[in-house]
Design a protein around this nucleic acid. Structure first.
Lengths: 136, 136
DNA sequence: CAACAAGTTGACGTTTACGTAAAGGGAAGC
DNA sequence: GCTTCCCTTTACGTAAACGTCAACTTGTTG
């Protein structure tokens, strides 16, 4: 059930150095057996969330504040309101990204069409060359 | 119809320094009147695309290669095939992000619920205090 | 027991994407 | 003509997120 640092590194295709760095930044807190880090399944989930955050362009700092949203019981009224604002900001951000992705996907479709057309043209040109050389 | 650097800077909420940097990296090529940069509407669109790329976590380098996809006529067969691969990579990437966003939106909903509950609890506690102090 | 693999802690290096002066040009207004 | 903007280039500084040694400890395997 527990993982070594290289277990996680291999599974998620990151370096042990990166994982240690996330810990240094306060995003992970694995147990230790002596000096050696021992990662629990929940540490593993955390790492997963960190990497998902990275894929969405979040800084490690942002991911860290997102983690705090998982435990709202520890906050006073003021902190809870800040949390709600944070959630709203992230929602807006995600909605913007969602829109960006959809538009870009359409553009990729168009780009693919243009490329395919250009390849076809190049292909037929090459065919002509081949025909010509075959004819010669 | 043309824009100054500060026009664009204001419109897109970036610094002139950033815009000059994008040019330095080969992403923009505005005309000049003397030394002064003059941006056309298409330069403006380019800047927009750069910033959209940034929102999706692309490096400037990646955005630059994406721009090249807009003009496939200038490529030979080998380059066109590379372009198609690039398009496919980006599609996969965007699909992953799309998924990440959807999952995270659900998680934000849950987090909001937890926060609201915690606030409610804190609120009723405060009410009790108020009642107690009103009662005293 | 020697060697090797895998882990550890510094500590400095690197890339990306700008920020931040410094020093100056050119036109517009008083 | 002087000041005030806005623009310019050059150049060094910086934050984030690791990469890359170096030097060392800790099992474990031949």
């Amino acid at each position: 059930m527990p993982y070594s640092i290289s277990d996680l590194a291999k599974e998620f295709d990151v370096t042990p150095r990166a994982i240690r760095f996330y810990e240094e930044q306060g995003l992970l807190n694995p147990e230790r057996r002596g000096q050696t880090r021992i990662y629990s399944p929940s540490d593993r989930v955390r790492l997963k969330l960190i990497l998902r955050g990275k894929r969405l362009g979040f800084t490690l700092e942002e991911s860290r504040t997102l983690f705090e949203l998982y435990d709202p019981s520890s906050g006073n009224r003021r902190q809870l309101e800040t949390m709600l604002e944070t959630i709203d900001r992230h929602r807006t951000h995600l909605a913007q990204q969602l829109h960006d992705i959809q538009v870009m996907m359409l553009e990729l479709d168009e780009a693919e069409t243009r490329c395919a057309r250009a390849l076809e043209a190049a292909g037929s040109a090459e065919n002509n060359k081949n025909i010509a050389s075959t004819e010669g």
